[in-house]
């Protein structure tokens, strides 16, 4: 199925949960945050939230800034 991840169209396994999505794409899991359809998802809920077609996901971390 297709989702929009960090602004890019991405094909991912159907019904995958957020926790597995990070592992599947080799994304960092420490000190990152996830937003699903504009709502922050608490870390404890990553495992239980299954993604659906056309979901919009943002995975963010920290970079240098002022």
């Amino acid at each position: 199925m297709n989702v929009i991840l960090n602004g890019e169209k991405k094909e991912i396994p159907s019904g995958i949960d957020l926790e597995s999505l990070l592992t599947h794409l080799s994304l960092p899991v420490k000190r990152v945050a996830i937003e699903l359809n504009k709502e922050v998802v608490r870390r404890k809920d990553w495992e239980s939230i299954k993604l659906s077609e056309a979901d919009r996901i943002e995975v963010v971390h920290f970079v240098g800034g002022g």
Binding site: V59, V60, H61, F62, G64, G65, G66
Partner: peptide, 29 residues
């Protein structure tokens, strides 16, 4: 201060925060 930014999908990234002294309070912007 640090900035919030999308994690790149095309390459492995190290955590920027690991380069900061643990004594520093981090203020995200």
């Amino acid at each position: 201060t640090v900035a919030v930014n999308r994690v790149p999908l095309d390459r492995a990234t190290e955590s920027f925060l690991d380069h900061l002294s643990p004594e520093m309070q981090i203020l995200p912007n």
